[in-house]
Design a protein around this nucleic acid. Structure first.
Lengths: 139, 139
DNA sequence: GCAATATGACACCACTTGGTTTCATAATCA
DNA sequence: TGATTATGAAACCAAGTGGTGTCATATTGC
């Protein structure tokens, strides 16, 4: 078993699940619907979509298993609501790359005077990611 | 044809592609490798992985078609480098949801006094996304 | 009790994915 | 020239995905 804490899923497992869940526009639309208008039951969520309730229910399952949707069962009603928490994982993952566009002009300038190859925006990467990578705040 | 600008792929198309590309840990590892140590050729990138070169080449194709990797061909060498630009699309998509964790405590407090259902962190969503959604800066 | 409702479960389908092996091709080098 | 190298292309495969339709089940309301 893992030494620290009892979570059995790795960070990679979670990122796999969350990113995959979000890589479908129907699921993104469902999430947005939940975010904008609050919790709703499955049938209600399925209504606006041009597909069967069963299909939407499956999408909800995917979102649920990624932790992006939680449900509370009240009688025959399954009330689904958004859980934004897993999105932080993406946010955190992006931290390591944010430097590539927040300091884009600097990078481009430095690249222009130091490199010969074309299409190498990653030229400053050696410094960039290692130096700025593990910083929690934003550049 | 689309009225404004000539891009034929929708925002949803791009998000689909980028999020799907990133939903595989091998591809994320490839991207990280490129970010940390700069451009490299296919064989070089494939070496550390416990899979065939062909498999890695396929992953690179996926990253490439999502715009996350670009390649320049120099003789028989295909030099791959990272393009961070598409990551901004994710960042931008996240903007609409960031309010859910940056103001988490407020949301929780308000939820506690206004709702009865359990597990409803999205209780404040009606206000949240609509009010804070389109803000470019961070809360 | 009975009808309507909300939902899950199951079987099925076409297509995609992530991997493999094998072969072809083009560039480089001795 | 001929061997080595870097790569793509193609055929293949098992498993997963996104969808369907049908049926079972539990809850609700008259």
């Amino acid at each position: 078993m893992p030494a620290v804490s009892d979570r059995r899923v790795s960070r990679d497992d979670r990122l796999d699940a969350v990113l995959h869940a979000l890589s479908d526009r129907t699921r993104r639309a469902l999430l947005r619907r939940l975010a904008e208008r609050g919790p709703a039951m499955v049938t209600e969520l399925a209504a606006p979509f041009d597909m069967t309730r069963v299909a939407v229910a499956k999408h909800l399952r995917v979102l649920e298993s990624a932790g992006l949707v939680s449900r509370t069962i009240e009688g025959r009603i399954h009330r689904c609501s958004m859980s934004a928490e897993p999105l932080r994982e993406i946010e955190h993952w992006l931290d390591d790359y944010r430097v590539f566009w927040t300091r884009k002009l600097d990078a481009l300038a430095r690249f222009a005077e130091s490199e010969d190859t074309i299409a190498r925006p990653a030229a400053e990467s050696e410094a960039a990611v290692r130096a700025g990578g593990r910083r929690k705040g934003r550049a």
